[in-house]
Amino acid sequence: MDIKRAQDIYASKETVSVHLDGEPVWIEHVDAQNGMATVQVGSRPTNTHTVGVERLEEQEH
Rank of each mutant, 00 (worst) to 15 (best):
H61A: 12
A11F: 13
T46D: 13
A11N: 15
T48F: 00
T50P: 06
N34V: 06
N47M: 04
V30F: 06
T38Q: 05
N47G: 01
E28V: 14
E54D: 14
D31C: 09
R44C: 07
S43W: 04
V51T: 06
Q7T: 15
M1P: 10
V18D: 01
K4C: 08
G52Q: 12
P45L: 01
R55D: 07
H19N: 14
E57V: 14
E28H: 06
E54Q: 10
Q40G: 02
N34W: 07
I9D: 07
P45M: 00
A32L: 05
R5F: 07
R44P: 02
V16G: 06
D31R: 07
L20T: 10
D2P: 06
D31P: 09
L20E: 09
V18M: 02
R55S: 08
A11D: 15
E60Y: 11
G42D: 00
V30A: 05
H49Y: 10
V25F: 04
V25D: 05
L56V: 02
S43M: 11
M1R: 08
N34A: 11
S17W: 14
K13S: 14
N34R: 11
D21W: 10
T15K: 13
V39T: 06
H29Q: 13
V41I: 12
A6R: 02
I9E: 04
T15F: 14
Q33W: 11
Q7V: 13
D2F: 01
Q33A: 14
Q33L: 13
R55A: 09
D2T: 00
R55K: 09
Q40F: 03
L56M: 01
V39R: 00
S43D: 15
M36N: 10
R5Y: 08
Q7G: 14
V39M: 05
P45W: 01
M36Q: 14
K4T: 15
D2E: 10
E54N: 12
E58S: 03
M1K: 05
V41D: 03
T50G: 02
L20S: 09
K13R: 12
D31E: 14
T46M: 07
W26Q: 15
E58G: 00
S17F: 11
G52C: 09
H49K: 14
N47I: 00
S17K: 15
V25P: 04
V51G: 04
V18P: 05
P45V: 08
G52N: 12
I27A: 00
M36V: 08
T50W: 02
E58D: 02
E58P: 03
E14T: 12
V30E: 07
H29E: 15
